[in-house]
Design a protein around this nucleic acid. Sequence first.
DNA 1: CTGTTAGCGCTTTCAA
DNA 2: TTGAAAGCGCTAACAG
Lengths: 365, 365
Amino acid sequence: MATIKDVAKAAGVSIASVSAVLNGSGRVGEGARGRIANAIEAVGYAPNTIARSLRLGHSHLIGMVVGDITNPFSGALVRTVEKVAIANGFSVIVSNADGDETRVPEIIDQLRGQHVAGIILNPMSRSDALVKQIESRPLPPVVTMDQKLPGLACDYVGIDNRAAIRMLVEYLVRLGHTRIALLSGRVGRWTADERYEGFVAAMADAGLVVDPSLVARAGYEGESGYEAAGAMMTRQDRPSAIVAANNIIALGALQSCLDLGFQCPADISLAGMDDVPWSGLVRPKLSIVGQPIADMGELAISWLLERIRAPDGAIAPRERIFRPFFAAGDSCRDIRPASPPSPPPPSSRPLSPRPISSRRRAMAQ
Amino acid sequence: MATIKDVAKAAGVSIASVSAVLNGSGRVGEGARGRIANAIEAVGYAPNTIARSLRLGHSHLIGMVVGDITNPFSGALVRTVEKVAIANGFSVIVSNADGDETRVPEIIDQLRGQHVAGIILNPMSRSDALVKQIESRPLPPVVTMDQKLPGLACDYVGIDNRAAIRMLVEYLVRLGHTRIALLSGRVGRWTADERYEGFVAAMADAGLVVDPSLVARAGYEGESGYEAAGAMMTRQDRPSAIVAANNIIALGALQSCLDLGFQCPADISLAGMDDVPWSGLVRPKLSIVGQPIADMGELAISWLLERIRAPDGAIAPRERIFRPFFAAGDSCRDIRPASPPSPPPPSSRPLSPRPISSRRRAMAQ
DNA sequence: CTGTTAGCGCTTTCAA
DNA sequence: TTGAAAGCGCTAACAG
């Protein structure tokens, strides 16, 4: 591997000059600059970022902790973050907690060891181990997503989970539904708890009772949605509508209903959170509340880069709660006894039929 | 950040002893060992892997170059690779070429600069820039996926793309189709070329002519599939069946047909490559030829780790071509004049109705 | 404008 | 069993 020394020798200059050229400080003369550029090409030199990092005291690596890399939500987020990071000379280490929040602390220790310049963190929960670790160890700049981390001087980017679920519940209520089920993630997983609480509050505000047996807290995976929905749909007093707390659960629930021979929305109405790339092709098209992933990802990485560049403690903790958006599909039935054919959606964001490609782009960029 | 020096001072020993304890060389006495362990805990020491990497000449980072991180195919691959890598003490840097093969060389240079221990590389094409770079620069151990890189002493993991497309064509031919279109990726993109050639060969073997105007080489993105299919379907002599060279194209094409008011499979038959997580919920369910992603990812990272641990040049280049599998959906119509209702699928792999969750797992793990 | 040099934190000889 | 010291490749004073 060619080093800066080789370049210097090939160009007949000192390593300081090579370094200066590499870092753009204009202290090098035209002639030398040209010879150095040639030498770099000739010896196939690529700067050793490890040595540079050691010298500088920090790397140009950014750690990104996602809950589940196979969720298209994560993929879209990673893509956005990576794009901005690379444009700024940083690389991204993606760490996948694989749905298990207890893995977060060890992932962070790993990242600490890599001396990453900053971390974009979905903490997933507020486990004791995580809190303890964060309190006891120094951390690089951090931007949290999905869940706030109180007591840590970091930024937070998220959406209002309660409001999001509320939009879903209110939509269903307006369609005449009263017996509404909720499928959410496991207890202790932050967004799952928030969405659960939003559900309870919205139901109460609508004057409806929450049947505890119609609330499942099984997990964010497709299996969970499939099984929980199956259990509810095979009961005598099955719900008329199901709210799913994420995209994967919703798809699992839909599959379960179809497998059991139910029609959607004829027999069961279904509404979920988060967009999926091919939502336009899933039949029936799901009514959803989505998150502006690209905007969120861009803000998160921008804030992180600011923090990395700013002197320690110069930036006060910031937070931005994005507005979720509603997109009506045809997975929910109007079951009011006598009523106009269709109520207006609760949000201004229209859902015209558009090709999946553009919908995908809307989600991914 | 505490360094090895701080630990040494706190323990009243030299840094050499601390290092020895950290690395398990048993040259340190009991007493010293105990004091060092305490000191490490007391100062909250985490080894600086950057310094260690500089000293050792290599990092515990693995670079992974994917074609398009938003393609669920990539997500599943990353997940598998990362899981195995972490279990072996490595971290993964994910680099996204974002569909643009000309970005691969610079990505590799980036990774070289990071002094990654190895690279899992989807070269995407065999561009001059890439070949030149690979010939002229030293590279860490490499395992290529999707496309072989001749002349490089590395391993290769892929599938037989021609055979995969052939399965699709033969399936359609058996259903009585003769006017079959192909939507593939751009010219120069390896898998796209291979799949195109497989298509031509399979058509010839079936005694069918390839209508050049029914072959699109627009790109692997959903937009491409949408537009190309739209153009073909609005012609007078539209095809009776379309073969899509990847999952995203297939979904775009399906959306396009539906938007134009065509029924699938009544008006148009559609078959594609690669599974998608929610394939069970897309209506109609697509007939596809898939790749055993998890197996491929696991082999790739295992081979890479072997190469990283082996002395230079100790392992001869290996390659493994996985068998693609066929999974029948109901997106293809039998248009033979008088015939039995349905032909047997060309492969033994059954496609029973299964919940998306398990299908997802089948794809992702 | 250019070169010399002191470290960044670590591992690893080599002496003691 | 221990410690001193060299040096991985780079950047940034500082000296010329």
